[in-house]
Amino acid sequence: MTTLIPPPPPNPEKAPIENVLSLTQLPDIDPDLFTNTRPMWHPPGARGIYGGAAIAQCLAAAQRTVPSNFTIHSMHCYFVLNGNADIPIIYHVEHVREGRSFATRTVQARQRGKPIFTTTMSFVREGAGGKQLVEHEVKMPFVPGPIETDKDGEATRLPQGIEGPFESQRIDILNNNSPDPHTKKARQWIRARGKISDKGGHQAHLSALAYMSDSYFIGTVARVHKLWRMANPGRARNGKPSIDEDVLKKLLDENDEQTILKKFPELNAEHIKDVKESSASLLKTRTNVAKRPEIGMMVSLDHTIYFHNPRDFRADDWIFTEMDSPWAGDGRGLVMQRMWTKEGKLIATCVQEGVVRLKQEKDSKL
């Protein structure tokens, strides 16, 4: 059973991301208990559910327990156990503090009585900063704007498939050929599909932003090091890419994603994009490709979001994100992310640390 209560049909008056993130309150048990209304998405090949869903639903639950004039400004999250898409999730909101200017909530997401995800959130009352303010923000870098296309346009990707709730357009990695991974920046435009309903209010846009913030995040470490992304992304059992070298070259020359996706169903658009972003030197020979380091394990440990201008953006309009990794080592990696509106207003700063372990070669002496 994937949900505690049979899910209703999707509400056509709401955007897909609103339906995905909808919660059912359990007031007969406890008014601070909620559960997922619809099944959770389990990314192919991942160890558990998409982490952004747990982040966003915890936020959605907490937002329903604070006064309407209080708005989220920060949340600090930990991924404790892999979420199981076949089991309902129970979200328990704890009221930690009710202050005049700030309110604090913790939320635990549980399955089978065990916490799989936990977060502490702080909300601030509107206008609490006063009329005179200290203000500054990092300016958005100059980048090509998003390309407006129809749903089948080549520029737009659907990271979670044709029924996924958001879309993205990648921009080439800045400084991609630099020998210093920390100088590279992974960039994309993202937005929720459809139109978020007026009834959802600013809360729906914040939850949607939280959901999308986990996209293309810890994987930045793999991208700036030009590693194979997954333990088995498009590879034959012998460890070499299942795509022939000539096909790879043709892919890079012709940019024909649809053909390659049909020919190699084990791949997805993100894997193909990663191949395109790899330097030509890594794809010159089969030997170089075969020796390319491979990710053995990559999973998020924690996730922090600082919300700026939280009532002054729309998640169903294009949002620009830029990610870089200041450090990696000891089997972990750290990634920083900034998010701006299309007009250049900074709306969020995010931080994520995750396990990033290479697939180890077997010692021939053993």
Rank of each mutant, 00 (worst) to 15 (best):
D180L: 08
D180S: 04
D180R: 00
D180V: 08
T183F: 10
K184W: 01
K184E: 08
A186H: 01
R187F: 05
W189N: 05
W189A: 02
I190H: 05
A192W: 01
R193D: 09
R193W: 05
G194V: 11
G194K: 08
K195M: 11
S197C: 05
S197M: 06
S197R: 00
D198Y: 00
K199L: 03
G200F: 09
G200A: 14
H202V: 14
A204W: 01
S207I: 11
A208S: 14
A210N: 04
Y211R: 04
Y211S: 05
Y211E: 06
S213T: 14
S213H: 11
S215Y: 06
Y216N: 02
Y216W: 05
F217P: 00
I218Y: 02
I218A: 03
G219T: 04
T220D: 02
R223E: 10
R223W: 01
R223A: 08
V224R: 04
H225Y: 15
K226H: 15
L227W: 14
R229G: 13
R229P: 04
R229D: 15
G234L: 00
G234R: 01
R235E: 13
A236N: 07
R237Q: 03
R237N: 04
R237S: 05
N238R: 10
G239C: 13
P241N: 10
S242M: 08
S242N: 11
I243H: 05
I243K: 02
I243Q: 00
I243Y: 00
D244S: 10
D246G: 10
V247Q: 07
L248V: 15
K250G: 02
L252S: 12
E254G: 09
N255D: 12
D256G: 13
T259K: 01
T259D: 07
I260F: 10
L261N: 10
L261Y: 06
K263I: 11
F264Q: 09
P265R: 09
E266K: 12
E266V: 07
L267F: 15
N268V: 00
E270A: 15
H271C: 09
K273W: 07
D274M: 11
V275S: 01
K276N: 15
K276R: 15
S279F: 07
A280I: 14
T285G: 06
N288M: 14
V289R: 14
K291H: 15
R292G: 00
P293D: 03
P293F: 03
E294I: 13
I295K: 08
M297Y: 07
M297F: 11
M297Q: 11
M297R: 13
M298W: 01
V299T: 08
V299Y: 02
V299S: 03
S300N: 08
L301A: 04
D302K: 06
D302W: 06
H303N: 01
H303Q: 06
T304Y: 07
I305Q: 03
Y306H: 13
Y306S: 02
F307Y: 13
H308E: 15
F313Y: 15
F313I: 05
R314P: 01
A315T: 00
A315G: 06
D316R: 02
D317G: 12
W318K: 02
I319K: 05
F320V: 08
F320A: 09
T321R: 01
T321G: 06
E322Q: 08
E322L: 12
E322T: 07
M323H: 08
D324P: 00
D324G: 09
D324F: 11
D324C: 13
W327K: 11
